[in-house]
Design a protein around this nucleic acid. Structure first.
Length: 595
DNA sequence: GCCGTTTTCGGCCCGACTGTTTTCAGTCG
């Protein structure tokens, strides 16, 4: 774990302990914010600490600065140690139990001596908790369910697993007459690589007060395994699919006139919402899921649960309109993470995010020559159908025996075959390449003389992914420095929720990549998505060029670039950062410059 | 704990649902 991650987790733990101790909520939130911001940083905290610049980080004040400085120097924090000693360590994991919050955990601890989850289960079974103030039979039952759910939950599930489930439910909602519009919100809309739950927002037809009927139908959909809550404006369920314990889906229903406000609100992130709500207050406005209102009018207006307040909003129908009234341009959902997007928007410095139309070709693909299922011609036809002007065929090298990797001899024959196909497609640039293995010590799987015959080289790590940081980093740097390597494919080799991948120190890698003109790949294939968004953003900050490739093994695979673009957009990447957005000529120059 | 061209003190986003309540606390998002 990197130093930044360690300190981020330290602050997370401190915020949790403070929560349990019933500390001022805003102090809890302040530490949570520090934790999140430090976790997202693209630069090293040690350097910031040494230069005395910690308080320049938004959210870091005097107290947090001291904690960080001490930790950087000594690897510990006396503030944290004191806090940790003040509550039983076993209480912290109990906060993960759904339906059980800090107040109740503290109550059980102080009144019944419950200090961990095991003791909680015993206390429930023995009936020891009955009779405590505010604790009835239903509450006990809900805690029991929460414990069972936690035990069966697989944690956050991947975006590619969650999206089909969400779209299935959306389809059913959209078929209902009372429903005017239904959309995905939350972290799924923002495109996070893993999803804790799915948020859906649904607008009713004008004048239709059928919210109750919609939630009733929703909780009865065949995908629904369990109903967690249900009212006229919202419902919460667990679906059958989506990991071992099912996937939680929250539906929120609003009148059509409030759709923009609700969509904005439920898309989040929480940090983004807090920021723009603060801006609203500064302008004498207040923003909630119903709309943006003049504060004075809003305070006086009649309000009923589940209904828009009885006052005309300043804006509410579309997100664009609400942003505009706050003095902001539209902010793309992928960057609504409280990572400086609102300040950038205010300064007119929002990034021009890369879009599907900017992609002119794919530089990492496989054919039947190794482990793909399509021929060279079929892949070219598929690329043409996508409107691409170039494609690189990059079959595996010899070490990948399991993937039918090519020997030098087979590779050179394959190059000839690719060039023969190339000559048939005028105006299209077909590159003969190879996805060459980066061996354990950073050498490549082919001699330079072989690589010199190729139009483009993608070098990727496939084996020995459990090296220590030093070895792994040296290995990748060596490949970056090779004059024949144009792209490092899936640099860490991680698989979301399955394999951590190489523990790389990216700073020397970025420095070498920028200096040598080697691009780093965002592999668009799920569950790779490697580089991830943090590393991709740090890469462009370090002036490294990126490639976004599908690593397609079929013609259909070539079309699946969406999640790669999502990672890039979340990393504030624009077309100017990505070699797949170059013209074929510029790309050839980018490759030639290195040799 | 953090923050500031209205503020160095006094705010900090806010609503829905549940359960245990006779008017609200806890939890969640």
């Amino acid at each position: 774990m990197s130093l930044n991650q360690e300190i981020s987790e330290l602050f997370h733990s401190m915020s949790r302990i403070l929560e349990l101790k019933g500390a001022n909520t805003f102090k809890v939130i302040a530490f949570q914010k520090v934790s999140r911001i430090l976790g997202d940083l693209t630069f090293d905290l040690r350097k910031m600490a040494e230069e005395g610049k910690l308080e320049e980080i938004e959210g870091v004040g005097g107290s947090s600065r001291k904690v960080i400085e001490e930790y950087v120097k000594t690897g510990r924090s006396t503030d944290y140690d004191e806090l940790a000693a003040s509550v039983p360590a076993g209480l912290l994991p109990m906060l993960e139990i759904s339906g059980l919050g800090p107040k109740t955990i503290a109550l059980f601890w102080k009144e019944k001596g419950v200090t961990n989850q095991e003791e909680l289960v015993k206390a429930i079974e023995s009936g020891a908790l009955a009779g405590l103030k505010g604790i009835g039979a239903k509450k006990i039952e809900s805690i029991k369910q929460g414990i069972a759910m936690l035990a069966s939950a697989a944690g956050r599930i991947g975006i590619a697993e969650a999206r089909p489930i969400a779209e299935g439910l959306l389809g059913r909602l959209r078929e209902m007459k009372a429903v005017k519009r239904a959309e995905i919100a939350g972290s799924l809309r923002r495109g996070r690589e893993t999803i804790g739950d799915v948020d859906l927002v649904c607008a009713l037809q004008a004048g239709d007060a059928a919210g109750e009927a919609v939630t009733k139908a929703f909780v009865g959909f065949p995908e629904v395994q369990r109903v967690l809550g249900q009212g006229p404006t919202k419902a919460s369920v667990v679906t059958v699919g989506g990991g071992q314990g099912g996937l939680q889906v929250d539906l929120r229903i609003v009148p059509a006139d409030c759709f923009g406000a609700a969509w904005l609100y439920f898309t989040g992130s929480k940090d983004h919402n807090v920021k723009i709500r603060g801006m609203a207050l500064e302008k004498g406005l207040t923003l909630n899921e119903w709309g943006l209102y003049k504060l004075a009018e809003y305070d006086k207006a009649a309000k009923k649960t589940g209904e828009a307040p009885a006052v005309k909003p300043v804006a509410s129908k579309t997100e664009t309109e609400i942003y505009a009234k706050l003095g902001l341009p539209f902010i793309e959902p992928e960057i609504r993470e409280g990572r400086g997007e609102v300040d950038a928007a205010l300064k007119g410095q929002l990034p021009n995010l890369i879009a599907r139309a900017d992609i002119r070709g794919d530089l990492h693909s496989h054919t039947t020559a190794s482990d793909g299922v399509a021929s060279i011609e079929q892949m070219v036809e598929a690329a043409l159908a996508l409107g691409y002007s170039f494609l690189a065929i990059t079959d595996h090298s010899k070490s990948q025996t399991i993937a039918n990797g090519l020997s030098a001899e087979r590779l050179l024959k394959h190059v000839k075959a690719i060039h023969a196909v190339r000559d048939k497609y005028k105006g299209f640039t077909l590159l003969a390449g190879c996805e060459v293995d980066i061996l354990v010590d950073g050498r490549l799987d082919f001699e330079d003389a072989v690589l010199a015959e190729l139009d483009i080289v993608v070098a990727s790590p496939h084996a020995s992914l459990k090296q220590d940081e030093k070895k792994a980093t040296d290995r990748i740097v060596r490949a970056v420095e090779s004059r024949y390597v144009n792209i490092i494919g899936h640099p860490t080799g991680r698989l979301i929720n399955r394999r951590a991948g190489l523990p790389l120190d990216f700073r020397p890698i970025f420095a070498a990549a920028a200096k040598n003109g080697t691009a780093l790949e965002i592999n668009a294939g799920y569950p790779r998505l490697d580089l991830n968004e943090q590393n991709a953003r740090a890469a462009i900050d370090a002036r490294v060029m990126l490639a976004i490739d599908t690593d397609a093994h079929s013609t259909e695979g070539l079309a699946e670039i969406g999640y790669g673009l999502t990672v890039a957009r979340r990393a504030w990447v624009g077309p100017q950062h990505v070699i797949n957005c170059m013209s074929a000529d510029e790309l050839q120059k980018f490759i030639a410059r290195k040799r």
